[in-house]
């Protein structure tokens, strides 16, 4: 009798942990880490953005100054200059990545010998560290011995432009590297979209004697558009915070020619140590990124709704 009771009691003890509790146990570590590493810093930096504070002056507590940091930043013409530069960089770079990436995906959709190998080779740039890429593209751009000028027709050393040293070309130099590095990412997403298009759509179009151009506009592009937009969205967000590539290639120079907003934010936060002001700048960037992201998401939803 006692043995029977003990047998019954054991499973009861096990059941004392409910499914919900088990779920909580599994989720809690993630939530705690998320709160500690993301949510708390996020809100604390929001608070700091309304204060005058420098992290290297620990004895001087944050002093509440309301919207002064935002006011100062939004009325600083140099900040707007950096935003405009960043906008130019983002639009040009992401547009080129979309075109090149989509083109590569169209090419690799065809089945031919060595397709897998070429796909792997094309994907190599996205696996590399941006700092390493910055360092070796510096050599590639070198007017004395770099291969870039040679490939575009300057066969005599030192006869071509100094891509990183001339203000009019430096931004383009960064864009070219960014496109080289990230077009494969766009290609990868587009390729998965292209491969998911059912063959019967093309077969039906062929029966109707639709031209390849018509098939592209009416079948291929609409089918790939959601994935293409997601790729563009991710790349836009990433391009907005481009930092390591610029530091590796130009350091933001010459002058201010490649001083993107993330590079400027780094200087404010970690060279000038104006923690309050840099927090405010980070939030301004955040708002802009969210606004741009929302435009994309609306487009995406519209496409999906069709």
């Amino acid at each position: 009798m006692q043995l029977t009771q003990a047998r019954i009691a054991r499973p009861q003890r096990r059941r004392s942990l409910t499914d919900v509790q088990i779920q909580v146990l599994f989720i809690a570590p993630t939530i705690i880490l998320l709160v500690l590493w993301n949510i708390f810093p996020l809100f604390y930096s929001l608070y700091l953005s309304f204060t005058e504070f420098s992290v290297i002056k620990p004895d001087v507590p944050p002093a509440w100054i309301g919207l002064q940091n935002y006011n100062k930043l939004l009325n600083d013409p140099r900040i707007w200059q950096y935003f405009a530069l960043t906008g130019r960089y983002v639009v040009t770079s992401v547009a080129l990545q979309a075109i090149v990436g989509f083109g590569l995906a169209m090419f690799l959709r065809e089945r031919f010998k060595g397709n897998g190998l070429i796909t792997t080779l094309i994907l190599i740039p996205i696996m590399m560290s941006p700092v390493v890429i910055g360092l070796f593209w510096k050599l590639i751009y070198n007017p004395a011995f770099g291969i870039f000028n040679y490939l575009i027709g300057y066969s005599v050393p030192n006869s071509g432009p100094d891509w990183l040293g001339e203000a009019s070309r430096a931004l383009w130099a960064v864009i070219i590297v960014d496109v080289w590095m990230w077009s494969p990412f766009v290609m990868l997403l587009c390729l998965s979209g292209l491969k998911a298009i059912p063959d019967y759509l093309y077969e039906a179009a062929a029966i109707d004697r639709a031209s390849p151009w018509f098939q592209f506009w009416r079948i291929t592009l609409p089918q790939v558009a959601p994935l293409l937009l997601i790729a563009i969205l991710f790349r836009t967000i990433e391009a907005f915070k481009t930092f390591d590539l610029v530091m590796g290639l130009t350091g933001g120079g010459p002058g201010d020619a490649t001083e993107l907003i993330a590079v400027h934010l780094y200087r404010a936060a970690f060279t000038r140590f104006t923690t309050g002001e840099s927090s405010a700048l980070a939030y301004i960037i955040l708002v802009i990124v969210i606004a741009v992201s929302n435009l994309y998401v609306r487009s995406l939803n519209r496409i999906r709704g069709e």
Binding site: P41, S45, I237
Partner: peptide, 23 residues
């Protein structure tokens, strides 16, 4: 999707003011 992107963007903000290295 929008909410997820919002969270993604919030995470980005935290990353924006996170540490970067000096030479």
């Amino acid at each position: 999707m929008t909410r997820k992107l919002g969270l993604l963007s919030l995470g980005l903000a935290a990353a924006l003011i996170a540490g970067c290295a000096a030479p």
